[in-house]
Design a binder for these strands. Structure first.
Lengths: 137, 137
DNA sequence: TGTAATTCCTATTAAACCGATAGGGTTAAT
DNA sequence: ATTAACCCTATCGGTTTAATAGGAATTACA
């Protein structure tokens, strides 16, 4: 299941991409328009800022803005920051690999083989989708 | 993330499909060979029995057996029983649909569109995989 | 210079879920 | 009768999730 954090984060990024002009976009505005709890959204935008997708301006008339073009923000990157591993099991994760406690040999594990297929098909979607695709009309 | 329940369930099904002969397969044997906590596995096999994939024989020399040919057990069905919805958000789930609280219009939601793609690509894998594929050498 | 508006930081919380365990009841083979 | 297996219900500690609370720091602007 997609966490609320990820869902809210994607909606916020989309919102910013759509309305962005000269002025940064405020948390309160996003929260109101997308029906996201404001304090929760704050923490999500903080993590998007710390991971480099967003920049911020503090103080009055402050807000958030994109640091890259929407067409250069890949879903693979966003999903890994917000949701974590794309793979359904650590033993098939490209970026968060962990060996299974059970499984003496991964190559003989039926679950392993299946989950590699799922990972690859999901990756194929995320690699071919950018924020521009999400925010485009 | 794939739950342990699903992972263990898939491994158990695979195990049963591989060793199945005349006698039913016992929980203790599966647990030992696949390194699965026995009591936990019991509850998983119970749900697979109640959902029709497995039959059981009680008492001494009892155990579990498949009720269909491995080639007729689709991953879509197994995953929905063990893991629940295949979709990452309820609003794109075919079998567990729920409307979002936010989202006035699904068709304009960027997350919705993306998650439909993910769902379809994942479904494509599960629809084309049976237990025979998992247990096959 | 002061006030309001906004991001930033830390902590806490309630609820849900997950993985596992406990203890015994029921059934069937020998 | 004994034993070996499935069956049922309950519980429990740990983790994660989603959200809230309260204020500190920063900036615009009158």
């Amino acid at each position: 299941m997609l966490s609320k954090k990820t869902k809210y984060g994607l909606k916020a990024l989309t919102y910013i991409a759509r309305v962005e002009g000269d002025a940064p976009v405020q948390v309160g505005e996003i929260a109101a328009n997308e029906k996201i709890p404001q304090k929760f959204l704050e923490s999500i935008l903080t993590s998007l800022r710390k991971s480099g997708f967003l920049g911020s301006k503090k103080g009055k008339h402050g807000g958030y803005y994109l640091r890259k073009e929407p067409s250069e923000i890949l879903m693979t990157e966003v999903m890994r920051i917000l949701e974590g591993p794309i793979a359904m099991v650590p033993c098939v994760s490209l970026n968060f690999y962990e060996k299974c406690d059970d499984c003496p040999d991964e190559n003989e594990c039926s679950v392993h083989k299946l989950m590699i297929q799922v990972r690859d098909s999901t990756l194929n979607v995320f690699r071919n989708t950018t924020l521009a695709d999400l925010s485009g009309s």
